[in-house]
Design a protein around this nucleic acid. Structure first.
Lengths: 348, 348
DNA sequence: GTTGGCACTCGGTAGAATTGAGTGCTAGCA
DNA sequence: TGCTAGCACTCAATTCTACCGAGTGCCAAC
């Protein structure tokens, strides 16, 4: 079994080979059956030539050390979060089946449309591939320079500022004035704004005119509105696919409800994904991510990197007993294809 | 009880007063308790001075006529879709509680931001008010005239057409060319497009230049891309709020899954809402809407009308045993506030 | 250290008995 | 004729029991 060096958490010490094998057998079978796993089953399944009694005594140790738990006396063991963590950290990389590989390939060959549409469809794809709920996060454009702006007169006191960023995203902002702006004034303000903002990023300071006429006022208002948005969260796009899979993954209705309630809050989902990435993890199991309602979930995250720059992330949300190998492989594959799709001659 | 004239379906004949009262009592109690309702309970609850035996014999008739059903012998009755239909058609209009009224008022007084944000938040509001899943549909802009367009050069062979409609919506389309367009050419094409498209609607024919130079080619491609979208479905925006309520409303996990799976398909949700509106209904119960996976659901729809023009709709999706009175009142109230919010001096 | 053996635990299941809510029917009454 | 009280009947749900068996923990022997 290919070992990868331990990740950050470090709480998880190494186990001797036999314990590791037993733990792995328990995790594998429990992921498969969703049932507690007994010692005899492990003894016969694993390739260790060992009696069930020996397995049992090892299990006692594993339980004492926090890798396994017993739902009740006289039941088999189930893995704890720590047990899953060890399993994942020592898992050899999974592979994507050929059928799925084909499906991904076909998808990215045929997909067309705007970035948002592609991301949304990618989310659906990833969910179908894995039968878990999928999250695709498109990075915000806070750092992307402005290519063009335009101020459009909707009504006398109501203008619309349309901004195009170099990453291809388009954002609109309403600008309301307390005076009736003429079409000429709006056109002039639009011209000035364009000259003023082009090439700048949202965090840049811009020299706005200080005059008190209508045009200057329009320009000031427009710039203020544009810069008012939260640079970090705002502009980030979330696409959630396969939320119905939640109902398949968990049996308790209450759990389903809680998870769905979390998924409804997009900002929260973004920060969840971001938190996990910040911790340098690719999987957060159970309570590792600190979101209590998701304590029976595992979250897999794969960053999307284009030209060395973070451009978003794809994620999967499933029960802690999810198929980590397959799911991680699928997430990585989709993330790579996504990067390639937008990397070649496009933007993300 | 205030009677409203029967709606379109017409299959539902009138019942004599006593039967109607009994049916109503059954529906009310079953909505409340989710349990089959027995004759004695009806006899004591309703203000009819009638013995349970009489109620029973009436129930036999109601069952024969299809308003009630029996889960099994020796159980009480539950309403059928037809029973709910009668109930809804003869329901006096519900009222919105003062607390809720205040909540709606506060919401619309404080809400700000772009149309999309308002609609999304409205959906959440409506869901919170009713504890059902809410759907807000913003009408497409197919019929809205174009206020402004702009072609922006993203990369040599990749332009972005940004279109602003009079309703305040902004749409972007990628235009890909097989030649390297210069900035000057793009600017010229942008100018021509603006002149060409301004004031037109998407269903209008536009005289495109037939020359074979880069600029003309750009203009042709851009117009084609813009007009390629499906005028009916595309551009319509759906905002679903409170999908976690689905898990509360139905007990079978399988039902929850099916309903969520439907909600994932936004186009389908739009046509569901549209279908119901087209039928002139405000409620579709059980199988009335023809979407089999939603046969245990009822859907309430209230159109949003601004200046006499349809501008979208708000909807609620719950179990057939939902609180029709409250829910319909809430949907109507929110719809009215929405119309007012965008009607006064804005657009929808 | 490993293993076979054994007593023990305890959730799950199956069956029987019981309960009780609710029905349908009928005979009698206004 | 319509209503009702009464009654036998039905059947899901509940409770109780017994029991099974998967699985454990422990121990003595190898």
């Amino acid at each position: 079994m290919a070992r990868r060096p331990l990740k950050k958490p470090g709480i998880v010490a190494d186990l001797d080979a036999r314990k590791a094998t037993i733990l792995e057998a328990v995790v594998r079978e429990h992921i498969d059956t969703a049932q507690p796993v007994g010692s005899s089953s492990v003894a016969s399944t694993s390739d260790l030539a060992i009696s069930s009694a020996t397995v049992r005594s090892e299990m006692v140790t594993l339980e004492r050390e926090g890798y396994l738990a017993q739902p009740h006396t006289s039941a088999g063991r189930i893995p704890t979060d720590k047990g899953y963590r060890y399993f994942v950290d020592h898992l050899q990389a999974g592979v994507v089946g050929v059928a799925q590989q084909q499906q991904i390939k076909d998808f990215f060959e045929n997909v067309r449309g705007e970035v948002e549409d592609v991301l949304a469809q990618t989310s659906t794809l990833l969910s179908q591939l894995t039968s878990y709920t999928s999250v695709v996060v498109g990075a915000g454009h806070a750092m992307s320079p402005i290519l063009s702006t335009q101020l459009v007169n909707l009504e006398a006191r109501h203008q619309l500022l349309v901004t195009v960023f170099a990453d291809g995203s388009v954002v609109k902002h309403s600008v309301t004035t307390n005076f009736d702006a003429s079409h000429v004034e709006v056109a002039e303000a639009s011209r000035q704004l364009h000259a003023l903002l082009i090439g700048t990023t949202l965090d840049a300071r811009v020299q706005v005119p200080s005059r008190s006429d209508h045009v200057a006022s329009l320009v000031r208002d427009a710039v203020a509105t544009l810069h008012a948005q939260q640079p970090t969260v705002d502009g980030e796009q979330v696409f959630i696919g396969g939320s119905s899979k939640v109902a398949e993954s968990f049996d308790g209705v209450e759990t389903v409800r809680k998870v769905l309630a979390i998924l409804e809050q997009e900002l929260l989902v973004v920060s969840l994904v971001q938190d996990i990435l910040d911790q340098g993890l690719s999987v957060a199991i159970g309570s590792e991510h600190g979101y209590e309602p998701l304590s029976s979930c595992a979250v897999i995250v794969a960053p999307v990197t284009i030209d060395g720059h973070p451009a978003g992330a794809v994620g999967l949300l499933g029960p802690t007993r999810m198929k980590y190998g397959e799911a991680m492989a699928a997430a990585r594959a989709v993330s790579a294809h996504l990067a390639h799709h937008f990397g070649g001659d496009e933007r993300a």
